[in-house]
Simulated scan of single mutants.
Amino acid sequence: MSDTSAQRVTVEITDGVADVRLARPEKRNALDPAMFAALVTTGERLRTEPGLRAVVLSGEGPDFCAGLDFGSFQAMRDGQRLSATADLPPGDGPAKATGQRAASVWAQVPVPVIAAITGNALGGGLQVALGADIRIVAPDASLSVLEVKWGLIPDMTGTQVLPELVGRDVAKELTFTGRKVRGEEAVALGLATRVDPDPRKAALELAREIAGRNPHAVRAAKRLLESSGRVDAATQLAAEQTEIGALIGSPNQVEAVTASFEKRAPRFTD
């Protein structure tokens, strides 16, 4: 299956794995209103895609996403915010601003989203990657909370997600300085999950592995891990019991046990 959204983001779905690519390589996949709209539209579509098991998010060409398009910075000098002109589909999450939705929609996709990062993931581009559940980076990838260079702050959910990943003090250092970090340091800090010389290949392999697991268990796990630390302990522990209660004895859970005992690949249904 192949689809193109506003000529900025492409989607191919094979065996439950969505291969999503930012498709503006001649501009380092920079974020302009059309790219923002394409990211949000694609994410909203994947929230309800039948049979979806995992998503890989990457960029065409050498870069993941170099951040805001230069035209946006030029408009800011005149007090304009071009992202606000993006034509977006309705959304129901807490994020309302265009950039926030472009990053947070990946957390709302009910299945795991794996970002494969090569080249530059700067400013808004990094914040889009932070919306993924897992980030696999090339050793020479360059990641930066770059907004301070332009006299700005990270406003695409970065001030919430970044401290959760790297700690409050490291988040402040990265945000105050805008310094760039490479793959190994990104992993050490918590910005990335692991390093691989071919992030997209590794991400697709991981996505296929996840796609072979009980999809209801994977979705439940994502829901629980997304809420962890954002709700009180009693609510989180109660949610655990609700999710496990729904899974135990369900057809896919029985199939997981049966397939394991019979030493064969499981056959799950959605």
Rank of each mutant, 00 (worst) to 15 (best):
G124H: 13
P112G: 11
A95T: 09
E49F: 11
R21G: 06
R28A: 12
A116M: 05
P110N: 12
R81A: 11
G67E: 07
I117E: 03
G119R: 02
G79W: 04
D87P: 00
A115H: 03
P112S: 11
V113M: 07
G93I: 06
I117W: 00
Q100F: 02
A115E: 03
P25R: 05
A18F: 09
P94E: 14
P25Y: 06
C65N: 15
V113R: 04
G91F: 10
A116G: 05
S83Q: 12
P112Y: 10
I114Y: 04
R53G: 08
G124N: 11
Q100R: 10
S83F: 12
D32Q: 03
R8T: 06
P33Q: 05
G51A: 14
Q80F: 11
G59F: 03
P33M: 07
G99F: 09
T85C: 01
T85H: 01
G99Y: 07
F73D: 10
T10S: 15
L22R: 04
C65W: 00
A34I: 01
G59P: 01
R24W: 10
S72D: 13
F36A: 10
F36N: 08
W106K: 05
R53Y: 09
R101V: 02
G119Q: 06
P62S: 11
T14E: 15
Q74Y: 06
D92F: 07
D32R: 02
A34Q: 12
G71H: 09
A103R: 04
A95M: 12
C65T: 10
P90R: 05
M35C: 14
F73K: 00
V40L: 06
A102L: 04
E60L: 15
R101H: 02
D78R: 15
D78E: 15
L68W: 10
G59C: 07
P94T: 12
T14P: 00
Q108P: 00
S104R: 13
A23H: 15
G67S: 09
T41N: 01
A34M: 08
P50V: 09
P110I: 13
G61H: 05
R53S: 11
T10C: 04
L122Q: 02
D32G: 07
R77W: 03
G91S: 14
S72N: 05
R24N: 13
P94N: 03
V11A: 05
A84W: 06
S72I: 15
V20S: 10
R53E: 08
G124Q: 11
A18E: 12
G79N: 09
K27W: 05
L122F: 10
W106L: 05
K27L: 14
P50I: 07
D92A: 15
G67C: 10
Q108K: 08
M76Y: 05
G67H: 05
G51V: 14
R8N: 01
L46S: 06
W106S: 07
N120S: 12
R77F: 13
P90F: 08
G16F: 11
P33D: 05
G43M: 08
T48N: 04
V105Q: 03
R47Q: 15
A107D: 13
T42P: 00
R45Q: 14
L39N: 09
P62M: 04
D32S: 03
P94Q: 08
D92W: 00
A116L: 06
L82T: 15
A66D: 10
F70M: 11
R8F: 04
